[in-house]
Write a protein that binds this DNA or RNA. Structure first.
Lengths: 253, 253
DNA sequence: GGATAAACTTAACCTATGTCAATCGAGGCA
DNA sequence: TGCCTCGATTGACATAGGTTAAGTTTATCC
């Protein structure tokens, strides 16, 4: 219940944050309603429940989970700076659960405040909209990887993606990153089983492509891993990638 | 190049269209810039290309395609009434190609006109935003189905989804629907091969769950097919489903 | 510091699906 | 009418990955 400050700093960092005016930045800071620390496994928003606020992930990891006949399935992963359930502003009810993985910190913004932004700040509205579509682009890449890659490549692809997304918000270093996802989670998100993901990790390890232990991911040679995973970062719309040309972007609307 | 009329009638039909005022409906009709008939296989918008207009699918089918080392992969399918690349308004460049499947008819809206809507019509803006998030919800369900269903169930799931989406816009009947997708397309969208999808079709056919020929899908017992596919329509946010309660929706914002 | 539980690891076996190769069938065209 | 092409279909074989079940390591807690 502390009065917040600076919690929006990571929002769209590495992407379109530079297109945000100072006015817009402080506006976003000011509409934060509350900040909270949450333990591992907290369900922030439940499938089908009416939402009247949205959540920005400040620290930690969050998974989008769809339960289906006993199985928990991870259909998305969010990292700090992600407005994890901004979707719920336009959708009102989500089709999935939003759950912390590891201890996390979040900031809340009421939908009333967001409605005010939409009514008065068209440019900022477009940036908020953009951030939700970024998730959709990531979803599409997951579909692609599930359709055509084998388990090892899928895992490698996911690790590459996480590295880049964490790198946008300065949470990755040249050797890897920290991550609370267990092998079960990884298996889940890659559409395979814990047993098989373990086989695959063993193989990647032996090829010197990846090291994974106790919440730490080590990437000895990122370029090699990306090649192995058929990974290209374009779809993350980061600075310098094919899809985000800062000059064009700043001018538009 | 005909002056258009009525082409927006299917937009959000079966979903939140009832929340749209008459003013908003005519506004949408009026910002249509152009209407066009396109042959099979036309690429409406190419990955990475700067877009200055968005496309509403009026008639026919459209696939979202990501090419990757020779392979064309379908990561989404759109049906009439879908604002297929409204994403491109906020993203400016898409991560995938947008391609017609079978002869189609589309209507174009310039981004300048959309920017005007965002600047002056907050409620309509939210509805447009909503429609893009619907695609994201569908993407998530695809991820789920690719993660946990087997090929036969995946195909059945896709057919069920298409039936419901076409039903929203009155293009499905109680026995099935017409659809230009070939077995290759279906295989592609289900993350399997043409050979295997054929095996699977044969099996579904012999179980009396599905009939498929020359652009016509026949569903003898939809309930049985949905059970087989572990399908529930909630995630499509249609009237009467878990996630869209008209009363709540109309009031909000 | 030993007990306990959770996560990780390995092995043996089996099935779904990929791959390759051939054939069939329908529609378009000379 | 008969050729030609594209899509659908089938068969034989190879393999990635699922399943079950057992160990092993690591972390937690008294």
């Amino acid at each position: 219940m502390s009065k917040p400050s600076g919690h929006m700093q990571l929002f769209l960092k590495g992407r379109l944050r530079h297109a945000m005016s100072d006015h817009e930045k402080t506006l976003l800071e000011n509409i934060i309603d509350d900040v909270e620390r949450l333990p591992d496994g907290t369900c922030i928003l439940e499938r089908g429940k009416l939402a009247n606020r949205s959540t920005l992930l400040v620290d930690g990891f969050i998974a989008r989970v769809i339960e289906d006949g006993g199985n928990r399935n991870i259909v998305g992963v969010q990292v700090p700076g992600d407005f994890v359930d901004l979707h719920a502003f336009a959708l009102k009810r989500l089709d999935h659960d939003v759950v912390t993985v590891g201890p996390s910190m979040v900031a809340y913004v009421t939908h009333a405040a967001l409605a005010e932004v939409v009514a008065t700040e068209p440019h900022l509205t477009r940036l908020l909209w953009f951030s939700t579509l970024l998730d959709a682009a990531i979803h599409r890449e997951w579909i692609l990887k599930l359709e055509q890659l084998r388990a090892g490549e899928r895992l490698a692809h996911m690790i590459c993606e996480l590295w880049h997304r964490l790198n946008f918000v300065d949470l990755a270093d040249s050797h890897g990153f920290n991550m609370p996802l267990l092998q079960t989670h990884l298996a889940n998100a890659c559409g395979t089983t814990a047993v098989h993901i373990n086989r695959v990790i063993k193989s990647l390890r032996s090829q010197g492509l990846l090291e994974l232990n106790r919440g730490r991911v080590t990437i000895p040679d990122r370029e090699a891993l990306e090649r192995y995973a058929h990974f290209t970062a374009d779809y993350l719309y980061g600075h310098g990638t094919l899809f985000l040309d800062p000059r064009t972007e700043v001018e538009t609307d």
